[in-house]
Design a protein around this nucleic acid. Sequence first.
RNA 1: GGUUUCGUAGCUCAAUUGGAUAGAGCACCUGACUACGGAUCAGGAGGUUUGGGGUUCGAAUCCCUACGAGACCA
Length: 620
Amino acid sequence: MQIECGLQRGTFAFCAWRSSKVYSSDMQSTIETTLKQDIHSAIQACFETTIDDLVLQPTKKEFEGTYTFVTFALTKALRRAPQQIGQQIGEYLVGNSSLVSGFNVVQGFLNLSLKSSAWLQVLQDIVADSSFGNQPANGQSVMVEFSSPNTNKPLHLGHLRNNCLGDSVARILKANGYEVVKTCLVNDRGIHICKSMLAYQKLGQGETPESSGLKGDHLAGKYYVEFDKEYKRQIAALVAEGMTEDAAAKQAPWILEAQDLLIKWENGDEETVTLWKKMNGWVYEGFQQTYDKMGISFDKTYYESNTYLLGKDIIEEGLKKGVFYQKEDQSVWIDLTEEGLDHKLVLRGNGTSVYITQDLGTTELKYGDYHNDRYMWVVGNEQDYHFNVLFAILKRLGRPYAQECFHLSYGMVDLPSGKMKSREGTVVDADDLILQMAQTAENRTRELGKIEDFAGDEARKLYHMLALGALKYFLLKVDPKKRMLFNPEESIDFQGHTGPFIQYTHARLCSILRKAESNGVVAAVPAEGFAVHSTEAEVVFYLSQYPARIQSASDEFSPALISLYAFELAKLYNQFYAELSIFADPDPQAVQFRVALSAAVAKTIRHAMGLLGIDVPEKM
RNA sequence: GGUUUCGUAGCUCAAUUGGAUAGAGCACCUGACUACGGAUCAGGAGGUUUGGGGUUCGAAUCCCUACGAGACCA
């Protein structure tokens, strides 16, 4: 008899990559595997049956035990009460399992406690595993495209979320065995770029980053705002003369001039292209400074100015294949009603591209360059529809990579006043925010006065590390899919559920390890005959969950899972730290064990924070 | 108008994907040993999971509906 009690993963309509994932059991610790085998034996022995996929969950804190086996699902097939099933299995395990020391049954929940020897073995395995947290190469490669800024304005908080997510997901995939190519597609041409160019031509008077002291991207952004101001004035003036709002928006002198500039650029007009190059150069330099500060880099940068003409040949191909159809005005469309989408324009009647045309071409280009097995785009959820359309078209065209594309759609960062709008000046600037965070870190550190022995340069590095820790953690601890709120009035915290909390725990751990070294204590896990305290067992158990957590984070593309893990681990360790003395314990085995445990926690915290792109200090 | 996402403590977020008495942090109140770092720890208070129906052993989670918020498509 077979009983179904496994969990089925949800499926995602547009992503074979994701929907094909099944929770694998290969990431569980060896102790978990053994325990499951023992439960299987118990079920076999008690009820003469087997079950397919047996699920263990961590026991809730308010109950005694570490692992919980839920028996509700078995009641129908066994025709017994859930308590009775739990009781029988529990009794069998205590008598026959080498791991189980005790159990209790609450309704349909069988809570199991493990022997000290089991925990010693688990920690021993973790300590011995030099690649703990890293999987061997799985032979799959994935391209992660993220950041993708516009060169008409500086980066803001929304970009920071994007950057942190893309960077962290890339690290997580890598730890899970993927070969990762990080790419960035710079949106460096188009009407919005021409707007700042025009305003600069009109008002710039030769201003440069050097002459103004402004960072290049901020300088360009300033003229983008100037354009908008003047444009609005012109519209208002036309409306005052009796024109409708719509007509005025189309006929204001500056918008006409900007459009003219765009045509000149497309025709390669020398003066225009020179200005474009000059201003974009400033912006790239500014962006690079911000990326450097954040510790973010790319393996390959694509520029839209090189790719915006791509894709037209694919339209041609699609027409021949009958995937697209042409209207009388020569515009090209695709009917995606079967996929639950609309009719979608893929090429304008005058032969010019729309976004989707370019994306078709760029995706083809990326595939040609790298032949990755999988492609990910880290882009805000405002473009959900766009990506659904893009992937649907790729499938219709029969592209080999169509099934392997995934849009990592993340929620917007909102302000208390609502959405950030750069033209209305309601943005939180990335550079400002990083600077402000560093200042907070400095103030806080000075107050506490713990690093008086640091040289000036060393201290500055620490402030920066803490600032980025706080900022990145703030952005990564929330489920990527959900929108999140940032309140500039309440600056990002350094206490509680924060990056610095975890960084602090690491610093304190390092302090312990330094002391162990100076005391001549060697970290060691006793083989037998040492009673592991329940708080210690909790820490060991949590450590053992780490590989499975990385696997989930990789499957779900969610750094938030790693963030929460690091926080919980730090919190558990702090409890242990407050509860038990490490060096004052009379039992030398206890001292060695606790130092070994501390070393393992330090290593794991460092690794987990590393997956978030956050550095941890040895002192703070 | 059509499509779609969301609504959990005063605030910001969790909840092992349908499991136990819905958990953390912030803010608020009360405590912490000359043992290792108090950016810490222990405790208290705080909830009709937006309202209303339904599905079943069991719902914040799935279905229907009303209200509210966001996004996208012309």
